[in-house]
Design a protein around this nucleic acid. Sequence first.
DNA 1: GTCTATAACCAGATAGAC
DNA 2: GTCTATCTGGTTATAGAC
Lengths: 205, 205
Amino acid sequence: MTEIDEAGHPDTASTRDRIMEAAIDLFTEQGFDKTSLREVAERVGVTKAALYYHFRSKEELLASLIERVHGIGNHGLDLLQALHGQDGPLDREAVLAALVVLLDQVLSHRRTFALMERNRTAIEALGDHDPEHQKEHQHLEEQWVEFVGNEHIPFPDRVRISAALGAVMAGAIGTTRGMGRETPTGLRDELVAVVRDILHLSEPE
Amino acid sequence: MTEIDEAGHPDTASTRDRIMEAAIDLFTEQGFDKTSLREVAERVGVTKAALYYHFRSKEELLASLIERVHGIGNHGLDLLQALHGQDGPLDREAVLAALVVLLDQVLSHRRTFALMERNRTAIEALGDHDPEHQKEHQHLEEQWVEFVGNEHIPFPDRVRISAALGAVMAGAIGTTRGMGRETPTGLRDELVAVVRDILHLSEPE
DNA sequence: GTCTATAACCAGATAGAC
DNA sequence: GTCTATCTGGTTATAGAC
């Protein structure tokens, strides 16, 4: 049972992991820009210089934190993109499936998604010196904007899919703040039901 | 017809308004922390020092931007708080009403809410030297956390209200990016219907 | 009201000893 | 791997002329 989002016991964890652990907390609470590397180092119990042995820059530290989800976490939106190719009425079941994939990602990487939600501008700015991130993020963003503005898709559908996306994120992250690492029982099912309601899909028998 | 969210024609607007106009765009696009006052001044066509004639600090500039919604924009959540006082099953109609109030606020102050959404940590940090903001924000935050974790309220209700809140925000802000100032026809009604669906409230006859 | 000039500071980042 | 010491640069903010 490998922990993906965090290291094991703080005592036995490597310095690199402990740095990432301190960073994700501070970045999420105070924001990336308002957190200095000195603060991170202090919490870990090392000096700033030590951080630079493990990470080339502050931005690389941030990148390492979201990397754990990157590529995987986008699969949900990738699917949406596929749907968007077909002009006309949406395949609601496919949209539901895509959102459930995303939901599961969010639930199993809650801390990372919370970090992302509260540091969007910082994460977008990562691309400035990291061309890979640049491409991937920009591409996704363009697809989404294009979808939202696509006149060929009925407006209510676009609104409802945006709303469903927001519902999933807020429902998964908002209701688990300050809770432990385990997903509350029933949360996933309830949110799937919510998405069903939004998309006007009735329960499977 | 007084514009609340923005000044009139850029040519006739006062310098103060033009500064706020430039700031809200830059802060939203790049983030508050990644935007220097030099950039803002440059876009307006004045020098940094001029900004300090109109605003005491960078933080005060940010505060002035969200002030236009402050107090008003929270009424939706204030109502939620009222509901939370009563332990037990929710008054769904009241929740709907509260969310509609919030929705209307978001729709008529879209740019401001977009700014807030993308600069939450910066806005929270405003309280560090502004005790009024501190109190108001912290109070609201506590109420919300308390509500979300309130064991006396059925878990599904809490999940659905969080989801509805996210749906409103994402639906109102996400679907209007890059659009003009006017709210797209039908957006409000559709989102109200979405909230109804989430809360399992049928249409009024 | 807006400018030029400058103060004061603190961040991110590097060099090199251990 | 981690430290001490330092560099470099940009940022907020102020003083005072116009």
